[in-house]
Amino acid sequence: LTQNVLKSYLETCAQRTEELQRRRWETFSSQEVCAYQRQSMAEMWQRCAGRLTEAIQQVVEFAKRLQGFMDLCQHDQIVLLKAGALEVVLVGMCRAFNADNRTVFFEGKYGGTELFRALGRAGDSGRGRGQAEGTASDEELLPGCHDLISSIFDFAQSLCALHCSDSEVAFLCALVLLNASRPWLQEQAKVAVLQGHLEVAFRLLLRRTQREELLARLPPAGRLRALCSQHLEQLQAFHRLHPGLLPAAFPPLYRELF
């Protein structure tokens, strides 16, 4: 089972861990950051929804390869993916996060929270960050969005501090997905059995690698849930600001999940 979890994860990762590590100091230039910040809020939301959807497609492929997942009824497969896909992406983000300069791998390079500033407000005219800050014209339209981005970065930072191996990240993702306490499951007992097997295998791995202390140091599951609700709240606030935006502006899978 341990081999299956790791193999499933590695096969469905867009980037190899070594590659992400090797490139962890390749950051966006200030001009490139400005270009992201100059985008309109709607453009940046669509861009991020696109990248997130790509990551979620990989989570679906990961789930399909996990032992036992495809034996569940399709209703439960969908329940688990709807509830867990974003959480899995957030856990996996620690692999693509450089905790030393608080940047994340996004569209080919590493960038900090400022890269995503346009998500919370209209793009500025390209002036430097310092100049725009604190002025009346810099009033934020979705102030909660910056809190969401900071919270996501904080979460990645706290997970990075645990220095998880690929196997550990793979297990954390599998356990987020195969969670028998998700509401609306039709065959909860079946999911509970799979979850139980995963937990045993994970504990055995941690014992073997003398990493048993990891379990006590993991962020509480409520933190992931809170991030997902924050994302939904911001998406709803965005839709209220842009009521005329065509639904087709977001990828179909993103619309289906959120």
Partner: peptide, 16 residues
Amino acid sequence: QEKHRILHKLLQNGNS
């Protein structure tokens, strides 16, 4: 079921 058309399709497809 119709509500989750894309997820259904992804789950039914072979490994892509």
